[in-house]
Design a protein around this nucleic acid. Structure first.
Lengths: 244, 244
DNA sequence: CGCTCATTTGACGCATGTCAACGCGCGTGG
DNA sequence: CCACGCGCGTTGACATGCGTCAAATGAGCG
């Protein structure tokens, strides 16, 4: 398991069987719905993969050979227009799934923000296994419905919110995400750069930066570093996010 | 959008009045996966409902008591911000589903654009029936994945496309939708008003109107009425939509 | 200490939102 | 049958928020 610094691709590839019970995201991932026996059947078709920071996991248009479960690190999902304009469709956090929304081809690319570890399932084998694991199928349906709800919320943000409201919404959600991960503090670590935030919020680096500055000036947040935000006024942030 | 075209043709089959027997369920998208026996079990929990134009079918925040299948007419899904700004999350065409993306409460409102007919399933009964109809569960998962892909395409539109590209994309999709319904002509009927298009594309009525005018001036479309568009240059429209 | 990359800040112009007027089609009622 | 009003769409004039370009500041690292 030597990390070759120059490589953007896989660092380690190991069989998954037996590791699942010990998996850190067991409780929040799709596998949470399974008992030990079923979990082993799922584990039998899984392999663990790692990617270095900035590595591409799959690309928009690729044949969707795998479905992934993110166990460590953060991933961004991107779509790119002909002239290079990029939109980040979503960020994936530990426990999240990659490659669900496809038919015929991945509809977006997945890139590692930092070093990541994921659990990889051959798509056809997972899909056929679903027929024997109904609770997993239900779980996937739930996850898809959840992601659909998130996507719709993001459409509202992109279509109708001002940059200030967008950044406030973004920070609010990051806080919610931190809570989900067990961190109940108001201090938020942003794993992504300004460019990612900008492409996620449908705006520019400069506007994101200026908006952070304004939120700081208005006493709603504090910036410890560029990537560490401390929320000073959570309610105020939420009001902003909701457009009040 | 185009990447999921193949699945759309199988998932969103268009129900034709008259093909539907008994409770009109037969032939409807989600139910197409079922044999006659299973279809009857589904039909047993379904009721037909009709709504007048502009009627509200359900509202954002309501307890999600039902899942719907649209059999006739068009529906818009909306989210509204505190100060009244509205975003249309999507339009639903005959054969489409309403109320899939919920957890605890509907995440958007559904409003009839014209008079509509739908098939209504009590949510808990449908969900428990899913355990006995695995092919239906698979179909719902497919539909959800498909809608997720559409939502992501819309995020790209809202976040990164110019108004001109948005309107071109919109018309292109309407054309694809018409093809799916069997109309292979370049003449498109728009069931919704300019305000709906604007709120769907994250822009304003005026900008939509001006953009239609520009597309007409550039010889890409012809406007028979305000709600009837004839595409003169389909390839040109697609290039615009893709940002080329 | 000096390179590089990320972020912030500043200056400026334009695209698009806003406000307003006008036209058109259609239904209604006198 | 025509006049009127109303809803909807189009067009025009204008203002401004945000994107673009550019430079300065700061952080990390050899």
């Amino acid at each position: 398991m030597q990390t070759s610094a120059q490589s953007m691709s896989t660092i380690r590839l190991v069989p998954r069987a037996g590791l699942c019970q010990a998996c850190q995201v067991r409780g929040i991932a799709a596998c949470a719905s399974l008992d030990d026996g079923d979990l082993q059947r799922l584990a039998a078709i899984a392999t663990q993969k790692e990617y270095a920071a900035e590595a591409t996991i799959f690309e928009q248009g690729d044949e969707p050979s795998f479905i992934y479960n993110l166990t460590e690190g953060h991933v961004r999902l991107t779509k790119t227009l002909a002239n290079g304009r990029r939109q980040i469709i979503g960020f994936v956090y530990p426990g999240g799934m990659l490659g669900l929304a496809v038919h015929g081809a991945y509809v977006c690319s997945a890139e590692a923000i930092g070093p990541v570890k994921l659990c990889r399932f051959p798509r056809p084998r997972l899909l056929s296994l679903l027929d024997e694991l109904p609770s997993l199928k239900t779980r996937l349906l739930d996850i898809a419905a959840d992601e659909l709800g998130d996507a719709q919320e993001q459409m509202l943000l992109l279509g109708r919110k001002t940059p200030l409201e967008r950044v406030a919404s973004f920070l609010w959600r990051q806080h919610q995400e931190a809570i989900r991960c067990g961190d109940s503090t108001l201090s938020i670590d942003l794993p992504m750069k300004r460019a990612d935030i900008a492409d996620y919020l449908g705006t520019t680096i400069e506007t994101v930066s200026r908006t952070f500055t304004k939120l700081r000036a208005d006493g709603l947040i504090k910036l410890e570093h560029a990537n560490k935000v401390i929320i000073l006024d959570l309610d105020g942030l939420e009001e902003l996010a909701e457009g009040l």
